[in-house]
Design a protein around this nucleic acid. Structure first.
Length: 475
RNA sequence: GGCCCCUUCGUCUAGCGGUUCAGGAUAUUUGGUUCUCAUCCAAAAGAUCGCGGGUUCGAAUCCCGCAGGGGUCACCA
């Protein structure tokens, strides 16, 4: 069996959103499970649309998600270069073959003239076909005009690894442009040449290319190139509508998610299961499990909607599984600025307490601020509490004083605090809903916090007592 | 408008002619875990399988039509 070689071939015209990374992930998985190679290739033949920094961003996105490529623009490989703008000679050579065989010709029309043909077709509510205007005696191609493919319209039946058996008639075949008037090849031509020269065996690409597949089949024949296997995956839809996910709809970039504190393994698991599953009830997959279980024939044919809630759930799952050391490595930088003056042990203890509450790291500041700074006394925490608001302020004050007296004698170890809090339930005769809530509010001034004893133990004696003292006058 | 693809709980999906008045997950609601939030556990609610015809003893599953959604018809990829 031939070694599997897949590629991810983005154009550096924008950033990598979740939909784009999915084709990369699938291609990577295919290569990994077949002991094959995964190739990165930049398709930079449209210099007008190129975005500064997009290449680095693409590379960083792949690396962040752990999609390591075996050959690529920055690391080279046996078929270098891996950037299309550096491969113009190849396209020139293949184009010449077509010219020699009478299968390519110069397009003598100006863009305006072609546009007029197009408008004409549109007005007649018919699809535009350039070949209906194919010139009878085209000039010799001198490189200043577009070079077009002289197509051989016919019906095609082909197999797509995801979409199944497909069929189209000859009416969709046209004389596509091979080389633009600026000398750069079109994607339509360049990717076929590159995939052949780079010995790519499987192409994974988005739905938008399915309509041009017959044209590619026609080109493969004319070039005498055996086509790779094709897997066309559906688009990922935006959260609200049925539109293809795009940056314009507020879709975040993969690195945006990482920046907000989503773990790469969560992103990978989420993206893989958007439109794919292994047929069992397993919901979350590690990269190794994906390599073992992924299969193109279980990829959904319909577009999946991007559901951030599901991503959030998966991310929370992964955060909970993190060891303390890993949690600290990932999460420490999200701590609020006030945390800088505290030592590492304290910061670790805080993170440990909120680990099971975290959905993504960007939530850390709001969840932990009271551990690092005294928040102002907030009377609303009492007045909106369904138990405490019923009690007389004087009574609350008495309860808190009793608690304070006991805590003053505590060594603030977790065991001692737990025991004292339990004893206080008896001495004050209050329910936990009253006693614990009151102490919790006094010491945190936050609407939510980890368990009371744990929180007090981390805050320490001095801070806890100081905050209770500060609370008393307001009651 | 032509061509192509798609259509199961809000969402992601299982399902490949019968053991399914459709299973799981998430989201939602409720209860429990000595306080809040979260976790965890339990439960509830949620899909006449887009609609209409067939084929069959039997269809979410096969066939046809329709509707809706998406893609494409660039010197973009």
């Amino acid at each position: 069996m031939k070694t599997i070689r897949t590629r991810f071939a983005p154009s550096p015209t924008g950033y990598l959103h979740v939909g784009g990374i999915r084709t990369a992930l699938f291609a990577w998985l295919l290569a990994r499970q077949g002991q094959g190679q995964f190739v990165l290739r930049f398709e930079d033949t449209d210099k007008k649309r190129e975005v500064e920094g997009a290449r680095d961003h693409l590379i960083k996105s792949l690396k962040t998600l752990g999609l390591k490529y075996d050959e690529g623009p920055d690391i080279g490989g046996p078929f270098a270069p891996y950037t299309q703008s550096e491969r113009l000679e190849s396209y020139r050579l293949w184009a010449q073959k077509l010219i020699d065989a009478g299968r390519a010709y110069a397009d003598p029309y100006t863009p305006e003239e072609v546009q007029a043909f197009r408008d004409e077709a549109r007005a007649a509510k018919k699809p535009f076909l350039y070949r209906n205007h194919r010139p009878e005696n085209p000039p010799i191609w001198d490189g200043t005009m577009p070079l077009r493919f002289k197509s051989d319209p016919k019906a095609y039946d082909w197999h797509d690894e995801v979409m199944g058996d497909l069929h189209t008639g000859p009416e969709v075949i046209d004389d596509i442009i091979l080389i633009k008037s600026d000398g750069y090849p079109t994607y339509n031509f360049a990717h076929i040449v590159d995939d052949a020269e780079m010995e790519i065996t499987h192409i994974i690409r988005g739905q938008e290319f399915i309509a041009s597949m017959p044209n590619y089949l026609n080109l493969y024949e004319a070039l005498g190139i055996e086509r790779p296997a094709i897997a066309t995956v559906p688009h990922i839809m935006g959260p609200d509508g049925n539109k293809k996910l795009s940056k314009r709809d507020g879709a975040k970039d993969v690195l945006d998610y990482v920046r907000d504190g989503f773990l790469p393994e969560a992103l990978v698991s989420f993206i893989a299961t958007l439109g794919w599953n292994d047929g069992t009830t397993q919901e979350i997959f590690s990269a190794d499990e994906l390599i073992e279980k992924f299969s193109l024939d279980h990829v959904q044919r319909s577009g999946a909607r991007f559901d951030e809630q599901r991503l959030t759930w998966i991310n929370g799952h992964y955060i909970r599984q993190l060891s303390m050391d890993d949690l600290y490595v990932h999460a420490a930088k999200y701590l609020p600025g006030e945390a800088d003056t505290f030592d590492e042990n304290y910061r670790r203890a805080v993170l440990s307490l909120i680990q099971e509450r975290l959905k993504y790291f960007a939530e850390i500041p709001q969840l932990t601020r009271f551990f690092f700074t005294d928040l102002p006394v907030d009377p609303a925490l009492i007045s909106s509490h369904k138990q405490l608001k019923k009690l007389d302020p004087a009574e609350l004050k008495q309860i808190l004083k009793t608690a304070l007296a006991s805590l003053e004698e505590s060594d603030f170890t977790l065991d001692d605090l737990t025991e004292r809090l339990n004893n206080l339930l008896e001495t004050t005769g209050q329910k936990p809903a009253v006693l614990f809530s009151l102490i919790r509010i006094a010491t945190t001034q936050a609407p939510a916090s980890p368990g009371l004893a744990e929180t007090l133990a981390v805050l320490g004696k001095e801070t806890s007592l100081r905050r209770i003292d500060a609370m008393l006058p307001s009651l």
